[in-house]
Design a protein around this nucleic acid. Structure first.
Length: 479
RNA sequence: GUCCCCAUGGUCUAGAGGCCUAGGACGUCACCCUUUCACGGUGAAAACCCGGGUUCGAAUCCCGGUGGGGACGCCA
């Protein structure tokens, strides 16, 4: 008998920027797979049509590739168990959801979102744990089917047993138990025919022969639901391992409001991918002893879950920067030239910059001065001049926060969209464009003189813009 | 509110009952090196959440509290 193959996956959902948490989870999945000669798979979980961003999928794949871990199967390279995009696998989920209905493990539910919202509100007000009241669970199967056939809007819910205990063996936490009475009947198939995460991941993990599910701690409390689903299907569940979540400096789950979370930010900043891997590895794991600098190959060689400690690690930019310096010092001068050409002075970036400064530069000696803020990280400027005359610091801080939200919501990062968002915001808030734009100019460029604002923001990119606006609004708030 | 997870300096961590006078790293401070800055070197301040057990002995095991986090969506 040969041992079953180790197969692990990451399942990012294309709803925004490639997330540092994805890189973290990916690293441990990858290392675990390589340690045991297994396969590492990427599956795109695009089952939420409302939050779906077309450009996000390619960005995530590119970011993971940059991060330096290669996948064996995935949406772009296929594999034996494809397709690797959930939106292309809808038939599976519908089939298996109906299977559960016919076996009596799931039922049609016709409750409206309004009813559910009202229910939740009432439960919360009465200090009860929110959850579905199983209103449709007792419907006659025949009657329900008739309503479905009539075209009534419905979802499919899973029938959680009303007694008993569901447990699983976590790879690093040991046995975790939940009482079934504490679980509610989760939706597995939405009204639009798309599956929820719970159904899709269980079906796919089974179909793709995933042996170990290594994911973030936020999934611990839904794992019993997944185990129950496996049981209902009559499938063998995979091994589950839940990693601690990366934290903001205030210990809450890492979030872009409080900490840069985009992988692109770190890339843009000039962090080497091998440093990010080394640093992330240290968030919970270490090779033993005092060694802190190590390659991913070394990590694979020495890896075991026994050396993984729980407790949410705060992601410390300062130490990351120190480590990056350690690596950079060891690079040869020639390697530096290569790295600078590949990461900083790229043809592509220079071509974006030149049109912005061409008219204001008479000789190349002026080029650096005119573009330095495009290459710098966090800027230094006199905060006193940030709020326009007659505006209090706190208001200016709010402008930045609110405008940033608008910019985050943009469907694409184009000059037109940025311009529109900024101008609309001024109109909405009855702010003088001159006031907002000067503040913004200083925040973005560090000075009162710069190339055209929207073009500048566009070229600077979302990650840096976000960082500078957040930093500025935070320090304004404190004034 | 309910359930689940976690708990060593400000931060990342070592520590698997005596090796702990709790080790390393980042950061901080001081000094040295140096025309400056940085690097580098030396040193310092800084932690076992609290209370009960178990044990000859507990940072380490058990229980309870406290604290932090996560989850409770037709989001993942």
């Amino acid at each position: 008998m040969t041992k079953p193959e180790i197969r692990v996956r990451i399942a990012p959902s294309p709803t925004g920027d490639p997330h540092i948490g994805t890189a973290y989870i990916a690293l441990f999945n990858y290392v675990f797979a390589k340690k045991h000669g297994g396969k590492f798979i990427i599956r795109i979980e695009d089952t939420d049509q409302t939050r779906y961003r077309a450009e996000s999928e390619a960005m995530i794949l590119d970011a993971v590739r940059w991060f330096g871990i290669e996948w064996d199967e995935g949406p772009d390279r296929g594999g034996e168990y494809g397709p690797y995009k959930q939106s292309e696998r809808l038939a599976h989920y519908q089939k298996w959801a109906k299977e559960l209905v016919s076996k009596g493990h799931a039922y049609y539910c016709f409750c409206s979102s309004e009813r559910l919202a009202g229910l939740r509100k009432k439960q919360t007000e009465n200090k009860l744990p929110p959850g579905y009241d199983r209103h449709c669970r007792t419907l006659e199967a025949k009657e329900a089917l008739a309503r479905v056939e009539k075209g009534e809007v419905h979802v499919i819910r899973f029938k959680v047993p009303s007694s008993g205990v569901t447990s699983f063996e976590d790879g690093i936490r040991g046995k975790v138990e939940f009482e079934n009475t504490k679980l509610d009947d989760l939706v597995i198939l939405k009204a639009d025919g798309f599956p929820t995460y719970h159904l899709a991941s269980v079906v796919d993990d089974h179909l793709m022969k995933i042996s170990h599910v290594i994911r973030g701690e936020e999934w611990v409390s839904s794992t019993p639901k997944h185990v129950l689903l496996y049981q209902a299907f009559g499938w063998e569940p995979p091994h589950f391992t839940h990693l601690n979540l990366l934290r903001n400096p205030d210990k809450s789950k890492i979030s872009k409001r409080k900490h840069p979370t985009s992988i692109l930010y770190y890339k843009r900043k000039g962090i080497l991918p091998e440093v990010l891997r080394n640093f992330l590895a240290l968030m919970g794991w270490n090779p033993g002893g005092d060694q802190e600098i190590f390659s991913t190959e070394e990590m694979i060689e020495k890896f075991s879950w026994e050396r993984f400690s729980l407790g949410g690690p705060v992601f410390d930019l300062t130490k990351l920067l120190w480590m990056n310096g350690q690596y950079l010092k060891k690079k040869s001068d020639f390697e530096w030239v290569q790295l600078l050409r590949q990461n900083v002075f790229t043809e592509d970036y220079l071509l974006q910059l030149i049109p912005l400064v061409k008219e204001r530069v008479c000789a190349f000696e002026e080029f650096i001065d005119n573009t330095s803020f495009f290459f710098n990280g966090d800027l230094k400027y006199d905060e006193a001049v940030l709020p326009p005359k007659g505006v209090v610091a706190k208001d200016a801080s709010n402008w930045l926060v609110e405008l940033l939200e608008k910019l985050e919501g943009l469907q694409s990062w184009t000059v037109e969209h940025i311009k529109e968002a900024c101008e609309n915001y001024c109109k909405e808030k009855e702010i003088k464009t001159k006031d907002l734009f000067m503040t913004l100019r200083i925040v973005i460029s560090g000075g009162t003189v710069s190339p055209p604002l929207f073009e500048t923001i566009h070229v600077l990119g979302k990650e840096m813009t976000r960082r500078r606006m957040r930093l500025a609004s935070d320090s304004l708030k404190k004034r």
